[in-house]
Design a protein around this nucleic acid. Structure first.
Lengths: 219, 219
DNA sequence: GAATGATTCAAACGTCTGTTTGAATCTTAC
DNA sequence: GTAAGATTCAAACAGACGTTTGAATCATTC
Protein backbone atom coordinates (compact mmCIF):
# COMPACT_ATOMS: atom_id res chain seq x y z
CA UNK A 1 0.00 0.00 0.00
CA UNK A 2 2.75 2.42 0.91
CA UNK A 3 4.55 1.69 -2.31
CA UNK A 4 1.59 2.49 -4.57
CA UNK A 5 0.57 5.63 -2.72
CA UNK A 6 4.15 6.86 -2.77
CA UNK A 7 4.43 6.72 -6.55
CA UNK A 8 1.11 8.44 -7.06
CA UNK A 9 2.04 11.17 -4.63
CA UNK A 10 5.49 11.58 -6.12
CA UNK A 11 3.87 12.21 -9.47
CA UNK A 12 1.31 14.62 -8.01
CA UNK A 13 3.93 16.56 -6.06
CA UNK A 14 6.21 16.95 -9.04
CA UNK A 15 3.28 17.80 -11.28
CA UNK A 16 2.09 20.49 -8.91
CA UNK A 17 5.51 22.10 -8.83
CA UNK A 18 6.14 21.88 -12.56
CA UNK A 19 2.65 22.79 -13.71
CA UNK A 20 2.55 25.87 -11.54
CA UNK A 21 5.91 26.97 -12.92
CA UNK A 22 5.49 26.20 -16.61
CA UNK A 23 1.82 25.48 -17.21
CA UNK A 24 0.25 22.18 -18.07
CA UNK A 25 1.19 22.25 -21.73
CA UNK A 26 4.73 23.28 -20.88
CA UNK A 27 5.53 20.10 -18.97
CA UNK A 28 6.03 16.77 -20.73
CA UNK A 29 5.50 13.45 -19.04
CA UNK A 30 9.21 12.76 -19.48
CA UNK A 31 10.16 15.89 -17.59
CA UNK A 32 7.52 15.14 -15.01
CA UNK A 33 8.49 11.55 -14.34
CA UNK A 34 12.19 12.37 -14.27
CA UNK A 35 11.56 15.09 -11.68
CA UNK A 36 9.37 12.73 -9.67
CA UNK A 37 11.95 9.95 -9.86
CA UNK A 38 9.49 7.43 -11.28
CA UNK A 39 9.26 5.55 -14.51
CA UNK A 40 7.58 7.14 -17.50
CA UNK A 41 4.99 4.38 -17.77
CA UNK A 42 4.00 4.78 -14.13
CA UNK A 43 1.83 7.72 -15.08
CA UNK A 44 -0.35 5.62 -17.32
CA UNK A 45 -0.35 2.73 -14.90
CA UNK A 46 -1.60 4.84 -11.99
CA UNK A 47 -3.61 7.56 -13.71
CA UNK A 48 -4.42 6.33 -17.20
CA UNK A 49 -3.44 9.50 -19.03
CA UNK A 50 -1.84 12.89 -18.61
CA UNK A 51 -5.28 14.49 -18.53
CA UNK A 52 -6.19 12.49 -15.44
CA UNK A 53 -2.97 13.55 -13.75
CA UNK A 54 -3.85 17.17 -14.34
CA UNK A 55 -7.33 16.76 -12.96
CA UNK A 56 -6.00 14.95 -9.89
CA UNK A 57 -3.43 17.67 -9.25
CA UNK A 58 -6.04 20.39 -9.27
CA UNK A 59 -8.66 18.45 -7.33
CA UNK A 60 -6.23 17.55 -4.54
CA UNK A 61 -5.80 21.19 -3.58
CA UNK A 62 -9.05 22.78 -4.65
CA UNK A 63 -11.33 20.51 -2.67
CA UNK A 64 -9.85 21.30 0.75
CA UNK A 65 -9.77 24.99 -0.16
CA UNK A 66 -13.46 25.06 -1.02
CA UNK A 67 -14.29 22.97 2.03
CA UNK A 68 -12.61 25.61 4.18
CA UNK A 69 -14.49 28.38 2.38
CA UNK A 70 -17.81 26.74 3.15
CA UNK A 71 -16.76 26.06 6.73
CA UNK A 72 -15.94 29.74 7.22
CA UNK A 73 -19.34 30.67 5.84
CA UNK A 74 -20.98 28.21 8.21
CA UNK A 75 -19.20 29.78 11.16
CA UNK A 76 -20.19 33.27 10.03
CA UNK A 77 -23.84 32.44 9.59
CA UNK A 78 -23.91 30.67 12.94
CA UNK A 79 -23.28 33.98 14.71
CA UNK A 80 -25.65 36.55 13.25
CA UNK A 81 -25.77 38.28 9.87
CA UNK A 82 -22.25 38.45 8.39
CA UNK A 83 -20.63 41.67 7.19
CA UNK A 84 -19.49 42.03 3.58
CA UNK A 85 -15.87 42.09 4.76
CA UNK A 86 -16.35 38.76 6.50
CA UNK A 87 -17.87 37.13 3.45
CA UNK A 88 -15.06 38.38 1.24
CA UNK A 89 -12.59 37.04 3.77
CA UNK A 90 -14.24 33.62 3.63
CA UNK A 91 -13.83 33.68 -0.13
CA UNK A 92 -10.27 34.94 -0.27
CA UNK A 93 -8.46 33.74 2.84
CA UNK A 94 -8.57 29.99 2.12
CA UNK A 95 -7.07 30.62 -1.29
CA UNK A 96 -4.23 32.70 0.11
CA UNK A 97 -3.55 30.77 3.27
CA UNK A 98 -4.31 27.13 2.80
CA UNK A 99 -1.06 25.84 1.41
CA UNK A 100 0.93 26.64 4.54
CA UNK A 101 4.62 27.39 4.22
CA UNK A 102 5.85 30.10 1.95
CA UNK A 103 7.37 28.42 -1.12
CA UNK A 104 4.61 25.83 -1.13
CA UNK A 105 1.98 28.50 -0.87
CA UNK A 106 3.31 30.40 -3.81
CA UNK A 107 3.30 27.26 -5.89
CA UNK A 108 -0.20 26.44 -4.84
CA UNK A 109 -1.46 29.93 -5.55
CA UNK A 110 -0.12 29.87 -9.06
CA UNK A 111 -1.50 26.39 -9.59
CA UNK A 112 -5.02 27.29 -8.59
CA UNK A 113 -4.99 30.56 -10.43
CA UNK A 114 -3.85 28.85 -13.56
CA UNK A 115 -6.95 26.73 -13.62
CA UNK A 116 -8.84 29.82 -14.69
CA UNK A 117 -6.58 30.55 -17.62
CA UNK A 118 -5.88 27.14 -19.08
CA UNK A 119 -7.89 26.88 -22.27
CA UNK A 120 -8.28 23.09 -22.29
CA UNK A 121 -11.90 22.03 -22.20
CA UNK A 122 -11.57 19.27 -19.66
CA UNK A 123 -10.27 21.86 -17.21
CA UNK A 124 -13.23 24.11 -17.84
CA UNK A 125 -15.38 21.15 -16.89
CA UNK A 126 -13.35 20.57 -13.75
CA UNK A 127 -13.84 24.22 -12.91
CA UNK A 128 -17.61 23.90 -13.17
CA UNK A 129 -17.64 20.70 -11.13
CA UNK A 130 -15.54 22.05 -8.29
CA UNK A 131 -16.85 25.59 -7.99
CA UNK A 132 -20.55 25.65 -8.85
CA UNK A 133 -21.67 24.74 -5.37
CA UNK A 134 -19.34 27.24 -3.70
CA UNK A 135 -20.46 30.02 -6.00
CA UNK A 136 -24.12 29.32 -5.34
CA UNK A 137 -23.56 29.43 -1.61
CA UNK A 138 -21.58 32.66 -1.66
CA UNK A 139 -24.19 34.27 -3.86
CA UNK A 140 -26.88 33.62 -1.28
CA UNK A 141 -24.82 34.99 1.59
CA UNK A 142 -23.73 38.05 -0.34
CA UNK A 143 -27.30 38.76 -1.36
CA UNK A 144 -28.51 38.77 2.22
CA UNK A 145 -25.75 41.23 3.12
CA UNK A 146 -26.38 43.38 0.04
CA UNK A 147 -30.14 43.30 -0.48
CA UNK A 148 -30.13 46.25 -2.88
CA UNK A 149 -28.17 44.30 -5.53
CA UNK A 150 -29.85 42.06 -8.09
CA UNK A 151 -28.79 38.45 -8.34
CA UNK A 152 -26.98 39.11 -11.59
CA UNK A 153 -25.14 42.09 -10.16
CA UNK A 154 -24.04 40.09 -7.13
CA UNK A 155 -22.67 37.36 -9.37
CA UNK A 156 -20.93 39.83 -11.60
CA UNK A 157 -19.24 41.49 -8.64
CA UNK A 158 -18.30 38.14 -7.16
CA UNK A 159 -16.66 37.44 -10.48
CA UNK A 160 -14.71 40.67 -10.12
CA UNK A 161 -13.50 39.60 -6.68
CA UNK A 162 -12.45 36.20 -7.95
CA UNK A 163 -10.73 37.91 -10.86
CA UNK A 164 -8.58 40.19 -8.77
CA UNK A 165 -7.81 37.32 -6.42
CA UNK A 166 -6.73 35.05 -9.24
CA UNK A 167 -4.70 37.76 -10.88
CA UNK A 168 -2.96 38.52 -7.60
CA UNK A 169 -2.14 34.88 -7.04
CA UNK A 170 -0.95 34.30 -10.58
CA UNK A 171 1.13 37.43 -11.10
CA UNK A 172 2.90 37.95 -7.82
CA UNK A 173 6.20 38.77 -9.48
CA UNK A 174 4.97 41.88 -11.34
CA UNK A 175 3.32 43.19 -8.18
CA UNK A 176 6.53 42.82 -6.24
CA UNK A 177 8.40 44.56 -9.05
CA UNK A 178 5.90 47.40 -9.46
CA UNK A 179 5.77 48.20 -5.80
CA UNK A 180 9.53 47.79 -5.34
CA UNK A 181 8.91 45.01 -2.86
CA UNK A 182 6.49 46.95 -0.68
CA UNK A 183 3.58 44.68 -1.60
CA UNK A 184 4.56 41.03 -1.62
CA UNK A 185 1.70 38.66 -2.40
CA UNK A 186 3.63 36.01 -0.51
CA UNK A 187 2.76 38.03 2.61
CA UNK A 188 -0.68 36.49 2.91
CA UNK A 189 -2.02 38.58 5.78
CA UNK A 190 -1.18 41.94 4.27
CA UNK A 191 -2.47 40.86 0.87
CA UNK A 192 -5.65 39.54 2.45
CA UNK A 193 -6.31 42.81 4.24
CA UNK A 194 -5.75 44.80 1.06
CA UNK A 195 -8.06 42.61 -0.99
CA UNK A 196 -10.79 42.60 1.65
CA UNK A 197 -10.80 46.38 1.92
CA UNK A 198 -10.82 46.88 -1.84
CA UNK A 199 -13.33 44.16 -2.63
CA UNK A 200 -15.80 45.00 0.14
CA UNK A 201 -15.90 48.61 -1.05
CA UNK A 202 -16.44 47.38 -4.59
CA UNK A 203 -19.25 45.04 -3.56
CA UNK A 204 -20.96 47.95 -1.80
CA UNK A 205 -20.51 50.36 -4.71
CA UNK A 206 -23.67 51.99 -6.12
CA UNK A 207 -25.26 50.28 -9.09
CA UNK A 208 -24.51 52.38 -12.18
CA UNK A 209 -27.37 53.85 -14.16
CA UNK A 210 -28.11 52.08 -17.43
CA UNK A 211 -26.89 54.18 -20.37
CA UNK A 212 -30.30 54.57 -22.06
CA UNK A 213 -33.81 55.11 -20.75
CA UNK A 214 -34.44 51.51 -19.70
CA UNK A 215 -34.08 52.31 -16.03
CA UNK A 216 -37.01 54.70 -15.99
CA UNK A 217 -39.41 51.83 -16.57
CA UNK A 218 -37.85 49.76 -13.77
CA UNK A 219 -37.61 52.34 -11.03
CA UNK B 1 3.87 44.91 -51.83
CA UNK B 2 0.26 43.83 -51.62
CA UNK B 3 1.23 40.19 -51.93
CA UNK B 4 3.71 40.24 -49.09
CA UNK B 5 1.54 42.20 -46.70
CA UNK B 6 -1.42 39.97 -47.45
CA UNK B 7 0.39 36.80 -46.40
CA UNK B 8 1.67 38.35 -43.19
CA UNK B 9 -1.77 39.62 -42.30
CA UNK B 10 -3.42 36.32 -43.18
CA UNK B 11 -1.11 34.65 -40.71
CA UNK B 12 -1.70 37.26 -38.02
CA UNK B 13 -5.48 37.15 -38.46
CA UNK B 14 -5.63 33.39 -38.26
CA UNK B 15 -3.19 33.38 -35.34
CA UNK B 16 -5.26 35.89 -33.43
CA UNK B 17 -8.41 33.81 -33.86
CA UNK B 18 -6.79 30.48 -33.07
CA UNK B 19 -4.60 31.67 -30.21
CA UNK B 20 -7.50 33.33 -28.46
CA UNK B 21 -9.56 30.17 -28.78
CA UNK B 22 -6.98 27.51 -27.89
CA UNK B 23 -3.99 29.29 -26.43
CA UNK B 24 -0.59 29.69 -27.99
CA UNK B 25 0.61 26.21 -27.12
CA UNK B 26 -2.61 24.69 -28.38
CA UNK B 27 -2.12 25.83 -31.96
CA UNK B 28 0.45 24.24 -34.24
CA UNK B 29 1.93 26.01 -37.22
CA UNK B 30 0.26 23.48 -39.48
CA UNK B 31 -3.15 24.26 -38.08
CA UNK B 32 -2.34 27.93 -38.27
CA UNK B 33 -1.13 28.01 -41.85
CA UNK B 34 -3.93 25.78 -43.06
CA UNK B 35 -6.48 28.12 -41.46
CA UNK B 36 -4.72 31.13 -42.96
CA UNK B 37 -4.52 29.49 -46.39
CA UNK B 38 -0.79 29.96 -46.71
CA UNK B 39 2.14 27.62 -46.98
CA UNK B 40 3.70 26.22 -43.83
CA UNK B 41 7.11 27.69 -44.66
CA UNK B 42 5.65 31.17 -45.10
CA UNK B 43 5.68 31.59 -41.33
CA UNK B 44 9.43 31.26 -41.14
CA UNK B 45 9.97 33.25 -44.29
CA UNK B 46 8.01 36.23 -43.00
CA UNK B 47 8.44 36.00 -39.25
CA UNK B 48 11.45 33.77 -38.59
CA UNK B 49 9.84 31.62 -35.91
CA UNK B 50 6.59 30.86 -34.15
CA UNK B 51 7.72 32.94 -31.20
CA UNK B 52 7.94 36.02 -33.41
CA UNK B 53 4.45 35.35 -34.76
CA UNK B 54 3.12 35.29 -31.24
CA UNK B 55 4.84 38.52 -30.31
CA UNK B 56 3.56 40.20 -33.48
CA UNK B 57 0.00 39.06 -32.82
CA UNK B 58 0.01 40.55 -29.35
CA UNK B 59 1.82 43.74 -30.26
CA UNK B 60 -0.52 44.51 -33.15
CA UNK B 61 -3.46 44.88 -30.80
CA UNK B 62 -1.87 45.97 -27.55
CA UNK B 63 -0.06 48.99 -28.94
CA UNK B 64 -3.17 50.78 -30.24
CA UNK B 65 -5.00 49.90 -27.02
CA UNK B 66 -2.32 51.45 -24.83
CA UNK B 67 -2.07 54.44 -27.16
CA UNK B 68 -5.77 55.04 -26.64
CA UNK B 69 -5.40 54.70 -22.90
CA UNK B 70 -2.71 57.36 -22.82
CA UNK B 71 -4.74 59.60 -25.14
CA UNK B 72 -7.72 59.39 -22.81
CA UNK B 73 -5.49 60.32 -19.89
CA UNK B 74 -4.16 63.28 -21.86
CA UNK B 75 -7.68 64.48 -22.54
CA UNK B 76 -8.62 64.08 -18.88
CA UNK B 77 -5.63 66.00 -17.56
CA UNK B 78 -6.18 68.73 -20.12
CA UNK B 79 -9.45 69.65 -18.43
CA UNK B 80 -8.80 69.86 -14.71
CA UNK B 81 -8.12 67.21 -12.11
CA UNK B 82 -9.67 63.89 -13.17
CA UNK B 83 -12.02 61.86 -11.00
CA UNK B 84 -11.18 58.31 -10.00
CA UNK B 85 -14.04 57.04 -12.17
CA UNK B 86 -12.58 58.80 -15.20
CA UNK B 87 -9.13 57.35 -14.65
CA UNK B 88 -10.54 53.85 -14.27
CA UNK B 89 -12.52 54.39 -17.47
CA UNK B 90 -9.35 55.37 -19.32
CA UNK B 91 -7.76 52.15 -18.12
CA UNK B 92 -10.67 49.82 -18.84
CA UNK B 93 -12.60 51.21 -21.79
CA UNK B 94 -9.91 50.82 -24.46
CA UNK B 95 -9.52 47.19 -23.49
CA UNK B 96 -13.25 46.50 -23.75
CA UNK B 97 -14.06 48.64 -26.74
CA UNK B 98 -11.16 48.80 -29.11
CA UNK B 99 -11.75 45.77 -31.23
CA UNK B 100 -15.05 47.03 -32.66
CA UNK B 101 -17.60 44.48 -33.78
CA UNK B 102 -18.84 41.85 -31.47
CA UNK B 103 -17.20 38.53 -32.47
CA UNK B 104 -13.93 40.29 -33.17
CA UNK B 105 -14.06 42.03 -29.85
CA UNK B 106 -14.56 38.86 -27.95
CA UNK B 107 -11.61 37.30 -29.70
CA UNK B 108 -9.47 40.30 -28.99
CA UNK B 109 -10.46 40.42 -25.34
CA UNK B 110 -9.51 36.84 -24.82
CA UNK B 111 -6.29 37.34 -26.71
CA UNK B 112 -5.15 40.27 -24.61
CA UNK B 113 -6.23 38.69 -21.38
CA UNK B 114 -4.34 35.56 -22.21
CA UNK B 115 -1.11 37.48 -22.34
CA UNK B 116 -1.27 37.72 -18.56
CA UNK B 117 -1.66 34.03 -18.06
CA UNK B 118 0.67 32.50 -20.62
CA UNK B 119 3.65 31.20 -18.70
CA UNK B 120 6.20 31.52 -21.52
CA UNK B 121 9.06 33.80 -20.61
CA UNK B 122 9.28 35.71 -23.85
CA UNK B 123 5.66 36.78 -23.29
CA UNK B 124 6.45 38.02 -19.81
CA UNK B 125 9.13 40.16 -21.44
CA UNK B 126 6.65 41.43 -24.01
CA UNK B 127 4.34 42.30 -21.15
CA UNK B 128 6.99 44.39 -19.44
CA UNK B 129 7.94 46.12 -22.68
CA UNK B 130 4.41 47.07 -23.65
CA UNK B 131 2.93 47.99 -20.29
CA UNK B 132 5.62 49.55 -18.09
CA UNK B 133 5.14 53.03 -19.49
CA UNK B 134 1.35 52.84 -19.25
CA UNK B 135 1.49 51.63 -15.68
CA UNK B 136 3.85 54.41 -14.64
CA UNK B 137 1.59 57.01 -16.16
CA UNK B 138 -1.58 55.68 -14.54
CA UNK B 139 0.14 55.48 -11.20
CA UNK B 140 0.94 59.19 -11.28
CA UNK B 141 -2.60 60.18 -12.23
CA UNK B 142 -4.17 57.88 -9.68
CA UNK B 143 -1.90 59.23 -6.97
CA UNK B 144 -2.92 62.79 -7.63
CA UNK B 145 -6.57 61.77 -7.38
CA UNK B 146 -5.98 59.65 -4.27
CA UNK B 147 -3.33 61.53 -2.28
CA UNK B 148 -3.94 59.55 0.90
CA UNK B 149 -2.66 56.32 -0.67
CA UNK B 150 1.00 55.36 -0.71
CA UNK B 151 2.68 54.61 -4.04
CA UNK B 152 2.76 50.92 -3.22
CA UNK B 153 -0.90 50.87 -2.29
CA UNK B 154 -1.86 52.64 -5.51
CA UNK B 155 0.07 50.12 -7.56
CA UNK B 156 -1.40 47.23 -5.67
CA UNK B 157 -4.93 48.47 -6.23
CA UNK B 158 -4.22 49.16 -9.89
CA UNK B 159 -3.16 45.55 -10.08
CA UNK B 160 -6.51 44.58 -8.61
CA UNK B 161 -8.31 46.59 -11.28
CA UNK B 162 -6.27 45.03 -14.05
CA UNK B 163 -6.93 41.65 -12.52
CA UNK B 164 -10.68 41.93 -12.51
CA UNK B 165 -10.59 43.39 -16.00
CA UNK B 166 -8.48 40.56 -17.35
CA UNK B 167 -10.57 37.95 -15.62
CA UNK B 168 -13.73 39.47 -17.03
CA UNK B 169 -12.31 39.50 -20.54
CA UNK B 170 -10.95 35.98 -20.33
CA UNK B 171 -13.87 34.23 -18.66
CA UNK B 172 -16.91 35.71 -20.29
CA UNK B 173 -18.62 32.35 -20.70
CA UNK B 174 -18.81 31.56 -16.95
CA UNK B 175 -20.16 35.04 -16.22
CA UNK B 176 -22.90 34.62 -18.78
CA UNK B 177 -23.68 31.21 -17.33
CA UNK B 178 -23.66 32.35 -13.69
CA UNK B 179 -25.87 35.32 -14.29
CA UNK B 180 -28.20 33.41 -16.62
CA UNK B 181 -27.36 35.82 -19.41
CA UNK B 182 -28.13 38.98 -17.45
CA UNK B 183 -24.48 40.08 -17.48
CA UNK B 184 -22.85 39.56 -20.85
CA UNK B 185 -19.24 40.74 -21.05
CA UNK B 186 -19.78 41.14 -24.78
CA UNK B 187 -22.04 44.08 -23.85
CA UNK B 188 -19.13 46.45 -23.50
CA UNK B 189 -20.96 49.49 -22.18
CA UNK B 190 -22.79 47.70 -19.41
CA UNK B 191 -19.65 45.81 -18.43
CA UNK B 192 -17.66 49.03 -18.45
CA UNK B 193 -20.15 50.78 -16.17
CA UNK B 194 -20.13 47.86 -13.73
CA UNK B 195 -16.33 47.71 -13.60
CA UNK B 196 -15.95 51.46 -13.18
CA UNK B 197 -18.38 51.59 -10.28
CA UNK B 198 -16.81 48.61 -8.55
CA UNK B 199 -13.20 49.58 -9.18
CA UNK B 200 -13.56 53.25 -8.27
CA UNK B 201 -15.10 52.27 -4.94
CA UNK B 202 -12.25 49.83 -4.41
CA UNK B 203 -9.61 52.42 -5.21
CA UNK B 204 -11.18 54.78 -2.67
CA UNK B 205 -11.49 52.14 0.06
CA UNK B 206 -9.85 52.91 3.40
CA UNK B 207 -6.34 51.56 3.90
CA UNK B 208 -6.57 48.60 6.27
CA UNK B 209 -4.74 48.75 9.57
CA UNK B 210 -1.54 46.71 9.69
CA UNK B 211 -2.11 43.61 11.82
CA UNK B 212 0.61 44.45 14.37
CA UNK B 213 1.65 47.65 16.06
CA UNK B 214 3.70 49.02 13.16
CA UNK B 215 1.11 51.62 12.26
CA UNK B 216 1.41 53.43 15.60
CA UNK B 217 4.89 54.64 14.69
CA UNK B 218 3.78 55.87 11.25
CA UNK B 219 0.64 57.78 12.17
C1' DG C 1 8.94 -21.48 -0.85
C1' DA C 2 5.91 -21.52 -4.59
C1' DA C 3 2.25 -19.07 -6.78
C1' DT C 4 -0.39 -14.96 -7.66
C1' DG C 5 -1.16 -10.34 -8.44
C1' DA C 6 0.64 -5.54 -8.18
C1' DT C 7 4.16 -2.63 -9.73
C1' DT C 8 8.28 -1.13 -12.22
C1' DC C 9 11.16 -0.93 -16.09
C1' DA C 10 13.52 -0.15 -20.79
C1' DA C 11 12.23 0.03 -25.27
C1' DA C 12 9.60 1.06 -28.95
C1' DC C 13 5.22 2.80 -31.27
C1' DG C 14 3.10 6.26 -34.37
C1' DT C 15 2.15 11.04 -34.50
C1' DC C 16 2.93 15.70 -34.15
C1' DT C 17 6.04 19.53 -33.47
C1' DG C 18 9.00 23.72 -35.27
C1' DT C 19 12.27 24.26 -38.65
C1' DT C 20 15.07 23.80 -43.01
C1' DT C 21 15.89 22.97 -47.79
C1' DG C 22 16.09 23.74 -52.73
C1' DA C 23 13.57 24.02 -56.62
C1' DA C 24 9.50 26.40 -58.75
C1' DT C 25 6.90 30.39 -59.37
C1' DC C 26 5.79 34.97 -59.30
C1' DT C 27 6.99 40.31 -59.44
C1' DT C 28 9.58 44.02 -60.72
C1' DA C 29 12.82 46.85 -63.42
C1' DC C 30 15.57 47.73 -67.34
C1' DG D 1 12.06 39.67 -73.07
C1' DT D 2 15.32 38.88 -69.88
C1' DA D 3 17.77 39.19 -65.58
C1' DA D 4 17.28 39.68 -60.42
C1' DG D 5 14.99 39.39 -56.53
C1' DA D 6 10.99 38.30 -53.75
C1' DT D 7 7.81 34.86 -52.60
C1' DT D 8 5.66 30.32 -52.59
C1' DC D 9 5.70 25.46 -52.53
C1' DA D 10 6.16 20.29 -51.50
C1' DA D 11 9.11 17.54 -49.14
C1' DA D 12 11.93 16.18 -45.67
C1' DC D 13 14.51 16.92 -41.16
C1' DA D 14 15.41 15.73 -36.33
C1' DG D 15 13.42 15.76 -32.06
C1' DA D 16 9.64 15.66 -28.62
C1' DC D 17 5.26 14.15 -27.48
C1' DG D 18 1.61 10.78 -25.16
C1' DT D 19 0.92 6.12 -25.17
C1' DT D 20 1.64 0.97 -25.42
C1' DT D 21 4.02 -3.27 -24.80
C1' DG D 22 5.90 -7.32 -22.59
C1' DA D 23 9.24 -8.91 -19.76
C1' DA D 24 11.35 -8.20 -15.05
C1' DT D 25 10.81 -7.31 -10.29
C1' DC D 26 8.41 -6.77 -6.06
C1' DA D 27 4.97 -7.84 -2.35
C1' DT D 28 1.66 -10.83 -0.50
C1' DT D 29 -0.75 -15.09 0.61
C1' DC D 30 -1.23 -19.77 1.27
Amino acid sequence: MSGRAATKDLVLDAAEALFSAKGVDGVSLRTLTKEAGVNLAAVHYHFGSKEEVVKAVFARRIRPMNRERLAMLDALEGSGRPEVEEIVTALVAPALRLAGDSPDRQRFMRLCARLYSEPAEYLQQLYVDEFSQVIDRFERVFRSALPSLSRAEVRRRMHFVVGLLVHTMLNSAPVRRWTSGACDPADAESTLAAIVSFAAAGMRAPVPDPPDGVRAAVT
